[in-house]
Amino acid sequence: MSEVVAQVTDELQRFRLDGRVAVVTGGTGGIGSRLCEAFSRVGARVVVHGRDRDRAAALADRLRDAGGEATPVAADLTRREDADRLVDETLATFGRVDVIVNTVGGGAGDALYPAESYPEEAWDRMFDLNLRSTLLPTQAAVRAMIAGGRGGRVLHFSSVRGQLGIDNGFSAYVAAKGALDALTRQQATEWAKHQITVNTISPTFVATAQSASLLADEAFRAGLEARIPLHRIAETDDVVGASLLLCTDAASFITGQILTLDGGLTACQ
């Protein structure tokens, strides 16, 4: 029995990140904060990014109180200088970058317009939030990974709306997420020679503060749950397993993939 236990323990090491450094953009958000906790619990040193430094610092304090290593960085990731500074501060604190997880995004519910008259200003804002804020920190992080020569993991968060249209004024959001899905495949192809994998998780609605107002509409929620084969809304815990898989040694041969985390929604659409 002891040999079996030892084998299981050894296999589980594939899902750990001891000594590695994980940058979580949007780390103060609902999904991001849960992932900061998860990555810390499997041994990663975590960089908690947020636009509000106090919130980022509070989460980093909680991770340290629980025995982890963490540091906060406040930055506006739609600005290249801020994205570069995020990685510069990571290197100054921990000396390396091994993982970047990009959870910044959303905002579709605040920018609903007909496709034929979608305002340019709103379009640009949605692309900044859902594409540029992922592109810029990823470029900076990957430059550090390449310089480090140890490979790395890039994980983006997209949406099932990158694959599915919706008759609800989502043109910019859908286009930005579709572009992120395509960018995932391109980045994976270019960075494979550096042993850097790039993958994307595409959820449907996840129960967070950002989606709370929409999910509070009982008719909307009931309709959504009826379309999802598992008949429930995802919780932040539901993103943890897939995220750990794609950011650890367990996924060393997985790259360029878009993993839909949607309770089966896209399987029947």
Rank of each mutant, 00 (worst) to 15 (best):
G107C: 08
A58K: 11
V73R: 10
R64S: 13
W123F: 15
L112I: 12
F127Q: 02
G67F: 08
A57K: 11
G67N: 07
N102Y: 04
A75W: 08
A60C: 07
A60I: 07
R62Y: 01
E120A: 05
V101K: 03
D128A: 14
A108E: 11
A57I: 02
A60Y: 07
W123I: 01
Y113H: 14
G106H: 08
D124F: 02
G109L: 11
A74G: 13
M126I: 15
E89C: 03
A111C: 07
D124N: 10
P72S: 09
I100W: 04
N102L: 07
A83N: 09
S117T: 14
E120W: 03
T71F: 14
R125S: 05
P119N: 04
T71P: 00
T78V: 09
T103I: 08
Y118H: 08
M126S: 11
F94S: 02
A60S: 15
E121G: 01
A83I: 09
R85A: 13
R80N: 07
R85Q: 11
A122N: 01
P72L: 09
T78P: 01
L59H: 10
R125G: 02
A83Y: 12
S117W: 00
V99Q: 03
D88L: 09
T90K: 07
A57L: 05
G106V: 13
Y118A: 01
D98V: 10
W123A: 00
R53I: 15
D84T: 14
I100G: 05
A122R: 12
A92K: 14
V104Y: 03
S117Q: 09
R80M: 06
D65C: 01
V97F: 14
A111K: 11
W123N: 00
R62E: 15
L86D: 07
L77E: 07
R53Q: 10
V104A: 08
L112G: 00
R80T: 13
E89A: 14
R62W: 01
A70E: 03
D52I: 06
D88V: 13
S117L: 01
D84G: 06
P72H: 12
F127R: 02
F94Y: 14
F127Y: 11
D52M: 06
D124L: 11
I100M: 06
L63V: 04
P114E: 04
A92S: 13
G68A: 05
D88T: 15
V87L: 09
G67S: 09
N102C: 15
R55L: 14
D61F: 04
T78N: 03
G107S: 08
V87W: 09
P119R: 04
D128V: 10
L63S: 04
D98A: 10
V101T: 06
V97Y: 10
R62C: 03
V87T: 09
A122K: 12
L77F: 10
G68W: 05
